[in-house]
Design a protein around this nucleic acid. Structure first.
Lengths: 347, 347
DNA sequence: TTGAAAGCGCTAACAC
DNA sequence: GTGTTAGCGCTTTCAA
């Protein structure tokens, strides 16, 4: 016979302000052991249907919900993944974030949002804190990635390749192909002098998109005019400056391929400012198909990047890694041209 | 004398794949008890400087980081707050989110991101899971808010007032004042027929902004034309439709006040589509000063809402509530006119 | 100033 | 099918 419950369940079941019911309360209320409550709640092991009903009923009446802390401690799993993002306002981050959270929730994981750079994270990402982490390109530095990986924390990269010696799963875009297609579309439309606005230095997306741009030119016997390869930084202010400067210097061009939609919007603005009409004088195209792209004036032709899928794929890879210990090493998501008005039709 | 450590610290300190060091390992390594390690790490109680150094050194060599699960369980606090957001793509959510996470981290809390609606949350927000929650207007329904509150979960609302009988702290904007000022600015500029694009039904922000708009008209002896009060839904597609319909019906107006910047962008597009020039024929203004507002064509005049501050205030209130059990009941953040080009200058 | 030990609320191995 | 119990890795009295 049970000598006594581990906790004074009389006072507990009274719910003295702030004391949430524990598994002991449920057990007492349902007149079973805590082991049985645990079994029912986790659908593990054996129990009679009648017991199940009683337990579930007690759970409902007490409005019991298990302590995740206790659960994590006992199971050695937190069912939380960290999402490490940069502190920037790029428009495509919102859909990405939504996709990650939804996919994670579907897979039974909560998402801890971490922003970098941060002075010092209150609680470092590490084993026993989260079950794994998804890292957005360049939001964590190599040192930290290595540390986490060395500590055995399952990691997945988004929009970036891992250091060659590291073999982390990552999800990427078909940047090169998309950029090449987009450039060829401009060429087909009759544009002869295409300017290019680079992305942020050091990012895989930047490299690959520029690569695709150059591929297309080369394939058509054109060469990139170095003067017309400008700073973009994935950011509208930077491109506004760049394009404005080009205009002031009197450079000639009939199209601008911006590395992302944010930069495209800055270019659009610089052009509008100078009274240059888009697309009749200059075509402008972007990359991503961010939420606002269709709302620009004129609506922006761009390369759709399936941002949401990047997020859900990352979650899939990570969950796989957590659950099975291994995972596909790289997935590349397709891109697709979205033709709107900013590129015009044939000249 | 200690009979034996609770765990085979020999194997532990070898870091057998995946076994993170525990407090026992640190204690063994530093030749002190786990109690002392705990004291040093939490800067609680007494210990000699020499002991402190030894412990800290062991922590470093073992790359130890405490298990949050164990800590939470022992302390009864998780140091995690939930952020409940809607699954929408409003542009101002991004800065809001960043602000919340940064403020929370500064205060020593991690942020669990929860999106609504969600089929069924894997782990319900509730006591012992998070220390409190910040709820974005309308992202959680009243039933859930009441349940959480009844369960003793500290709650703060953003952009919404609590049900009258509930007394939850909330952070709001000076919507009414801001909208009134904006409207008066349009009137001063000589606009006579000002259309209004409503926000989403049922939201406090919608009500208050419309209120401010009407206040201004009334103060100037003007009346709102019911035909020119249209659906906005805080969303560019809706306003695109609304404005397009107005145009097709031949309604006359010389200004549009959109309830937020997203809706303003839809209005801008509808106008551009119809070949109506902004601001010379129709002025367009918005609310929020979302990141893209300055990049629209023409740059959007709007009411700056200090979105980031809403987030950090919400965190401040919540942390206060968690720590002291009570908190200011309502804070209203000021707004400010941002005059750009979409409203034109005097007619 | 330090150590021993009793929880915190669960899960899971083992006994019945 | 159900109960007992030993942890999970911490914090925190209470002794020493």
């Amino acid at each position: 016979m049970t000598l006594r419950t581990r906790r004074n369940s009389t006072s507990s079941s009274l719910h003295p302000k702030g004391a949430a019911p524990s598994i002991d309360d449920v057990a007492a209320h349902a007149r079973v052991s805590i082991a049985t409550v645990s079994r029912v709640l986790n659908a593990r092991g054996k129990y009679s249907e009648e017991t199940r009903q009683r337990v579930l009923q007690s759970v409902r009446t007490l409005d019991y919900s298990p302590s995740t802390a206790a659960r994590s401690l006992a199971r050695g799993r937190t069912h939380v993944i960290a999402l490490v993002m940069p502190t920037i306002n790029a428009a495509f981050l919102q859909p990405l974030l939504v996709a990650v959270v939804e996919a994670a929730n579907r897979a039974g994981f909560d998402v801890l949002l971490t922003l970098r750079p941060i002075a010092k994270n209150h609680r470092p990402i590490g084993k026993h804190n989260v079950d794994g982490a998804i890292i957005f390109a360049s939001s964590a530095d190599q040192t930290e990635v290595r540390r986490l990986h060395a500590a055995g924390c399952p990691l997945v990269l988004m929009y970036d390749v891992p250091p060659i010696d590291l073999n982390l799963p990552c999800v990427l875009l078909e940047n090169r192909h998309g950029a090449r297609q987009m450039t060829e579309h401009l060429i087909k439309l009759g544009r002869k002098k295409i300017a290019f606005l680079r992305g942020t230095d050091g990012l895989e997306d930047s490299r690959e998109r520029e690569g695709g741009f150059r591929d297309a030119l080369a394939a058509h016997g054109m060469v990139a005019d170095q003067e017309l390869i400008g700073a973009g930084e994935f950011n509208s202010d930077a491109t506004f400056q760049t394009v404005t400067a080009w205009l002031e210097r009197g450079l000639q061009f009939d199209a601008i391929f911006a590395s992302d939609d944010d930069s495209a919007s800055g270019a659009l603005q610089a052009l509008a400012n100078a009274g240059i009409s888009v697309p009749s004088s200059v075509a402008v195209v972007g990359f991503d198909d961010a939420p606002f792209a269709a709302n620009l004036t004129p609506p922006l032709t761009t390369v759709r990047a399936m941002t949401g899928q990047v997020g859900s794929e990352a979650v899939r890879l990570l969950v796989n890694l957590i659950e099975t210990g291994s995972s596909a090493s790289q997935v590349r998501l397709p891109t697709e041209l979205v033709i709107r008005r900013s590129c015009g039709s044939s000249l």
